[in-house]
Design a binder for these strands. Structure first.
Lengths: 148, 148
DNA sequence: TTGCTCCTCACGTCACGTGAGGTGGC
DNA sequence: TTGCTCCTCACGTCACGTGAGGTGGC
């Protein structure tokens, strides 16, 4: 289960604690035994976690059919959940891309200014460098490049 | 600060507790006062959190310049961090997209089978429906559609 | 027989959330 | 003056991580 799912033993035991999976039984020495069905369930749980589902939401997923007693509505709710998570990941990705562009864009320009710099590199010098308009740096770069 | 950054007061106080931001001072009644500079820093922290940075990694970002004392290497390390997070988000997005496709793909087929179904919808009936080969359902659907 | 892995408590961690009880500021 | 917001403890929560001390299984 550990190797096939990429989780730690502790994580698998924790999923059992909260009632998501369950071993078929135990070996005489106390080691847990699982059916292939449980491995598949664990892998689905792992993928749902990666996709941003909380354990509570995963519990909802596994209870959708029971809760609605109507496969069509259950499927629609599942799609709703998936789309919500997709929106969330897209927002995160957009934030990251913007940070990267903000940062990378001006970085190359500054690298040139530094390459031509006659002063030895140092914190005080760079933060007061006349070649660089610190006030106009994008915020990301300002906080990495600048002091405090 | 709350309105302009989209965080709760508790979150902002927490960032102060761990030393990421700091109010300029207090009003006579105890309310925190911030400089515009701190709002910008808070907004950057918020975006980095959205992008998947931990508070510890954000502390590293703000300490990069001091730690390396070399703006070029500091920038390279920042790009490394950004790319690591990008890879992480891409993996999560790929997992989600696959779940969606697995699910949506067969769902439409099943909807037809159900539309033509003569039986009233019910848990026991659907899980043993002869029209649906439960063993060949993609795992996502199998766990939502099926029982247990 | 030697290691590596699993076992069970049980406390720790990260990033806040959530009352409880009280005051501030427009 | 009425509300809404902020304040400070302080305990709770989510999803595990991390030893401590002991056994299992190839």
């Amino acid at each position: 289960m550990v190797r096939q799912s990429g989780n730690t033993p502790r994580t698998i035991r924790f999923y059992e604690e909260v009632g998501l999976i369950r071993p078929r039984g135990r070996t005489q020495g106390g080691h847990r035994l699982y059916e292939p069905r449980e491995l598949e369930k664990l892998q689905l749980i792992t993928d749902l976690r990666l996709a941003g589902f909380s354990l509570e939401e995963i519990r909802v997923v596994f209870g959708l059919k029971r809760a609605t007693a109507d496969a069509k509505r259950a499927s629609q709710q599942m799609m709703q959940l998936l789309n919500d998570k997709l929106e969330d990941l897209k927002r995160r990705l957009a934030a990251l891309i913007q940070l990267k562009e903000e940062f990378a864009g001006t970085m190359s320009v500054l690298q040139n200014a530094c390459a031509e710099c006659k002063q030895p590199p140092g914190q005080e010098l760079c933060s007061s460098c006349a070649e660089v308009d610190h006030g106009n740096l994008p915020r990301t770069l300002r906080w990495v490049w600048h002091l405090d």
